[in-house]
Amino acid sequence: MHSLPIPTPRRDSRGFTLVELLVALMVMALLSLMSWRGLDAMGKAQAQTQARADALQTLRNGLAQWSADLDAMATDLTNPRAINTLPSPLEWNGLVFRITRYSSTAGAPGLRVVAWTSRAENGRKVWLRWQSPVVQSRNALQDAWTQAALWAQSPDDATRKQQVQIVPLVDWQIFYYRGDAWTNPGSSSEASAVNPDGVRLQLTLPQDSPLSGKISHDWMRSTASGTKS
């Protein structure tokens, strides 16, 4: 007798069809596109957050320097570092804000003239700070005071090297605190305008920058009797 062969299970060796392969590729491509868009959105959000943080830190540094310049204003003529018959320690003429201040450089006693203004740089208006070298004579101080005004109007290459750009700017305003009120710097006599109890700085930042809108920053003399917002 002959035994019959035992049948074995049939193995299906069929692979993916072309349609199945195309569908799989389309799904993978869709998932990749969605992932890329998600990563791109995250990258842009991180970049915007970092740009805003950097701009905020730069503005904080600028406002801190503004306050430091006013804190160091040379108004005490009995101080041995001061120079007799100083130019006005503080002046705002609508274009440039000038301050005569004591030098903070170690080992270099004397005075500096600091100036703040706004001007177009590389096609964009920015807030700028300038400072003179340390001066130790009345003539040198007067020259620095004059140079600060010239820098604000028409800077040359030499004075540009002494300036620092702070933030983009649309406009800025300054008010003095005197007589228990905030007023325009030019609205009172010259004597009371020279050394007010406080200075209010208002900056208007452009809408297309990481920081935008209006910012107000008040500085008060430590000996001021009171404030009124």
Rank of each mutant, 00 (worst) to 15 (best):
R119S: 15
P133L: 01
Q142H: 10
S118N: 11
W145L: 13
A144H: 01
Q131E: 09
Q131A: 07
N139M: 14
T146C: 07
P133A: 02
T117K: 10
R129W: 02
T117N: 09
E121N: 12
V126E: 08
A115H: 01
V114A: 07
V126N: 07
L128P: 01
A115F: 03
Q147E: 12
W116T: 05
S137G: 14
N139S: 15
N139F: 11
W145A: 09
A120H: 13
R124S: 12
R119T: 15
Q147H: 13
W116E: 05
L141W: 01
A144V: 01
A148I: 08
T117M: 11
Q147W: 09
A120M: 13
Q147G: 13
V126Q: 08
Q136G: 13
N122V: 14
Q136L: 10
A144D: 00
A120R: 15
W145F: 10
Q147D: 12
L128Y: 03
V126G: 03
Q142W: 07
S137I: 09
K125N: 14
N139T: 14
P133R: 03
D143C: 03
A120T: 14
A140F: 06
Q142A: 13
S132G: 04
N122F: 13
S132I: 03
R119L: 15
Q136F: 04
V113Q: 08
E121Y: 08
Q142G: 10
W116D: 05
K125Q: 14
W145P: 04
S132A: 06
A140E: 09
A120K: 14
R129S: 00
T146G: 05
V134W: 00
N122A: 14
S118V: 12
V134D: 08
A115N: 00
K125Y: 11
D143I: 05
N139E: 15
P133N: 03
W116I: 06
S132D: 04
V114K: 05
W127P: 01
A115Y: 00
D143H: 11
V114G: 05
S132R: 01
P133Q: 05
V113C: 13
W127Y: 05
R129K: 02
D143L: 05
S137A: 14
W130S: 09
L128W: 00
R119N: 14
V135Q: 02
L141Q: 03
V114I: 11
A144P: 00
T146I: 07
R138E: 13
S118P: 04
Q131M: 06
A140H: 08
L141K: 06
L141S: 08
Q147A: 15
L128S: 03
W127G: 00
V134Y: 01
R138W: 04
T117L: 10
S137H: 11
A115I: 02
W145E: 07
A120G: 13
V113S: 10
W130C: 05
S118E: 10
R119V: 15
L141I: 04
P133H: 02
E121F: 08
K125V: 12
S132Y: 01
W127F: 04
A115T: 04
V134N: 08
S132N: 04
N139R: 15
L141D: 04
Q142M: 11
W127D: 02
G123W: 00
V135Y: 00
W145R: 13
L141R: 04
W116V: 05
P133V: 02
K125F: 10
S118C: 10
W127T: 04
R129L: 00
V114E: 05
V113D: 07
T146N: 06
A140Q: 09
S132H: 01
R124K: 12
Q136D: 13
V126A: 07
